[in-house]
Design a protein around this nucleic acid. Structure first.
Length: 570
RNA sequence: GCGCCCUUAGCUCAGUGGAUAGAGCGUCCGGCUACGAACCGGGAGGUCGCAGGUUCGAAUCCUGCAGGGCGCACCA
């Protein structure tokens, strides 16, 4: 619809210039927007205000010339000039009714766009260290990343979801030591527990599983061998657990990328990917040696200071591995890479962007910073601590509120806003809970359709799509849908492709929950004012059933992008 | 000290340089002998943190200040 309006305005400008009614050396952008106030119409353009000076006319005068050019378009009912020189356009009922046909024809594909033109995008998110349970923030990244991927797919990108597994490095060793210590306790040994070791109850659980499976045989083994064995056993367990929890919220990854593979020698025994990445930067002239360390000159790429890649002791920094990781991503052919990180990593963004630019992919990395989650229960802050073992984990939260409420609440705030998550509210089945408000609209529609079809309302096996196929006819006289509530509903349905576009361009899936609530509200208002099933008005009933079914489809579509179910009954 | 994010109604938050700044909750008033009242309608409630600047026009862009959050390793 936006394109239609934009070309209408551009056409009016061109025609007015050609006809000599205005004088411009250059045609301006159409500057089309949706007015905040619905009484100003469906669309407005400020083009007359912006170009009045260049055209040497006063804005209202210019607006009048342009309005005259636009008046005859079949999709436009009214063109009005308002305020200092806005041109307000009202879309015709006919054009809105056509939207209903579009929604039903496209079904789950309604709102699909070709912004991506099939370009390959990778979204990397969660990437929690596999040394313990995920915290609630991980849940937020999971919901955010997965919905972002869904939106990008809907907008025409080819998307892959990836989880970076930090299976190398000291936190893995700490993890192994911690598990080994608990294991030795179970074997009845006295142990000394390191200060920075992990103390969560889950460590003891893992140790117990190993103890039960393998007995006390490792108690007298060489500590290094024992820890190495425990590391592998335990981390695989944790990783499987992470997959399981994420899957429980409907989040599944295409690729689980192991950090270790970056450090390992190549297949033919040559240099590792980390070494190759450094060499590739060296070849491009971005590497120097200082104080026995190898440095990446990142300042020229906008970083605050240059960064060490290889330390004086010969080992590589985490950043070096991350550069290799991102080089690997681009080597795999992605046109665009999106990383979702917690706010506690924002200091890392500049150097990563610098590295990606130095590797020859400037501007192809987007880092989305997600602010943290504060958990509340009945107004009280719930503290999270990775070490005390008393934290509320992402899994705990999911068990308590369920995947629908969890995903919906995680998406409801914009990403750069810290999220206050109220467990009590998420569990409430009341009008205070927005996820139920939206799902209720969908269930209510299904109920109307069942009722209209004369279906037995107690029969749970009634299939809604079969009901619809029988009930809703393409011959329905949609021109009868001309009341305010009906027009508002159709306007809201028409907005969906724009919402997908904005969410995809700005990487802000939170727009979806807002839209879902607006669409649900438009439907509830329509329902209150318009009786759908009326035996005395068969024509009107047919038309309204058509509109109701289109709403059902669009609600289901937006909920798919959010990642929340669209129940037929509640 | 430096950097990033935030500051909008009593609360939680929307708000792509446009018109009289919006929603939900809370509060007050009203609506089921019609298809799901888990719903709908209406009222009250604002110096958009403060001060400058840019322009036809600023909650939005720029600068400074204040308050809050998070970071500033040859850690990962």
């Amino acid at each position: 619809m936006r394109e239609v309006i934009e070309s209408l305005v551009s056409e009016a400008l061109r025609s007015a210039v050609q006809g000599g009614r205005i004088t411009l050396t250059e045609l301006p952008e159409p500057a089309v927007e949706r007015p905040r106030d619905p009484s100003h119409g469906d669309w407005a353009t400020s083009v007359a205000l912006r170009t009045a000076k260049a055209a040497g006319m006063n804005p209202r005068e210019l607006a009048q010339v342009l309005a005259d050019e636009m008046a005859d378009h079949p999709d436009i009912d009214a063109v009005e000039i308002a305020g200092p020189g806005f041109i307000n356009l009202r879309v015709s009922a006919h054009a809105l009714q056509r939207v209903l046909r579009e929604v039903r024809a496209e079904g789950t594909g309604y709102g699909r766009l070709d912004l991506g033109k099939g370009r390959r995008v990778q979204v990397e998110f969660v990437s929690a260290n596999p040394v313990g349970p995920m915290h609630v923030g991980h849940g937020r990244w999971a919901a955010l990343g997965d919905s972002m991927a869904r939106v990008l797919e809907h907008a025409g990108y080819s998307v892959e979801r990836e989880f970076y597994v930090n299976d190398a490095g000291v936190q893995m060793d700490t993890f192994a030591k911690s598990v080994a210590a608990r294991y030795l306790e179970l074997c009845g040994r006295e142990i000394e527990f390191g200060e920075d070791w992990y103390r969560g109850a889950y460590i003891t659980e893992i140790a117990r599983e190993i103890f039960e499976a393998e007995g006390a045989s490792w108690a007298d083994a060489d500590p290094a061998k024992r820890e190495s064995h425990f590391k592998e056993t335990a981390y695989v367990q944790v990783l499987e657990h992470l997959k399981h929890v994420l899957h429980g919220m409907g989040v599944d990854f295409d690729v689980w990328f192991s950090e270790r593979t970056l450090h390992a020698p190549s297949a033919d025994g040559g240099p590792s990917e980390v070494e190759q990445a450094i060499e590739s930067l060296r070849a491009a002239g971005h590497i120097y040696e200082l104080d026995d360390a190898t440095w990446f000159a990142s300042i020229p790429f906008g970083d605050d200071k240059d960064r060490v890649l290889k330390k004086a002791d010969g080992s590589y920094t985490y950043f070096a591995a991350d550069i290799a990781y991102h080089k690997d991503k681009f080597d795999r052919g992605f046109d665009r890479v999106i990383d979702i990180w917690g706010a506690d990593h924002h200091g890392y963004v500049k150097r990563m962007e610098a590295a990606v630019a130095a590797l020859g992919h400037p501007g192809q990395l987007d880092v989305v910073i997600g602010q943290l989650v504060n958990l509340f229960r009945d107004g009280e802050v719930v503290r999270m601590s990775k070490r005390t073992g008393e934290m509320v984990t992402f899994e705990d939260l999911l068990d308590e509120v369920g995947p629908d409420a969890a995903r919906y609440f995680f998406l409801r705030r914009s990403t750069d806003q810290p999220l206050d998550f109220d467990i009590g509210l998420a569990k409430q089945r009341s009008n205070e809970n927005p996820v139920f408000y939206v799902q209720y609209a969908h269930a209510r529609i299904c109920s109307i359709l069942r009722k209209a079809a004369g279906a037995d309302t107690s029969d749970d096996s009634v299939d809604i799509s079969a009901t619809v196929a029988e009930l809703v006819s393409e011959d329905a006289p949609l021109k009868l849908l001309a009341g305010d509530a009906e027009l508002s509903l159709m306007r809201k349905l028409a907005e969906f492709p724009e919402v997908v576009e904005v969410a995809a361009l700005q990487l802000t899936p939170s727009k979806l929950t807002r839209y879902a609530e607006e669409l649900a509200a438009a439907f509830h208002q329509f329902y209150t004012l318009c009786k759908v099933v009326d035996p005395e008005e068969p024509e009107l009933t047919a038309a309204r059933l058509y509109a109701v079914d289109a709403t059902r489809i669009a609600l289901a579509d937006v909920l798919v992008l959010v990642g929340v179910s669209a129940p037929e009954r509640m």
